[in-house]
Amino acid sequence: MNTSVTRKKWDRLARFYRWSTRAAEQRWEPWKRALFSRMDSGDILFLAVGTGEEIPLFPEKRRITAIDISPRMLEKAQDRALEYIGNISLKQMDAGNLVFHSETFAQVFTSCTFCSVPDPIQGFQELYRVLKPEGELHMFEHTRSRHFPFREMLRIMNPVAARVGPSLTRDTVSNAQKAGFRVDEIQNIYLDIVKTISAHKPGAEH
């Protein structure tokens, strides 16, 4: 699925997104809040901000650049961004083609992003590029399952799900590793499907 198709799909979903994800956001709030509490004082990149549901969970007074592929989603996120106590800028951008200079950010955070990025390894390579050496990557993602029967169920449902929304079978941990990240921590939140993943970009070789 290419970038234009992905953008159109999420533009279509923007209208109902807040309503349809309300309960999920409520259930996942404690884990997201804990993950975002790791935001520190350096420059932070956040993918994908969507309609801005997570913005109220960010610690105050951080410098955050939040991107999303969908202009319609970003329109909806404006109100939350205006309420944020700190510095946040919203930009429309494809995770696989970031316009930032290399080694710009100290930390990158993602939320349910790599289920939808058209080329996930390219997306991770871009994150790797824009992160400073020893920079941190913290993700809240849903991935494929490694366990029967969930693995099979997700495979069966994926052709339908990926058409209308996210992919259900992404191996996000492996994809991050393929791009060069060192995975430090994985925390399963629901089965082994919804999880937080923390990784870092190794420093320069000496």
């Binding site: 994800t21 309960a23 259930r27 969930f150 169920m153 449902m157 339908v160 629901y190 089965l191």
Partner: peptide, 26 residues
């Protein structure tokens, strides 16, 4: 499969995402 798609769409806004969809699939 048809039932789970319809019910997931109806129940997910009320009760969550994967917590609704995965048991419904099975």
């Amino acid at each position: 499969m048809a039932a789970l798609v319809v019910l997931s769409l109806l129940l997910m806004p009320l009760f969550g995402a994967f917590e609704v969809m995965v048991p419904a699939m099975l």
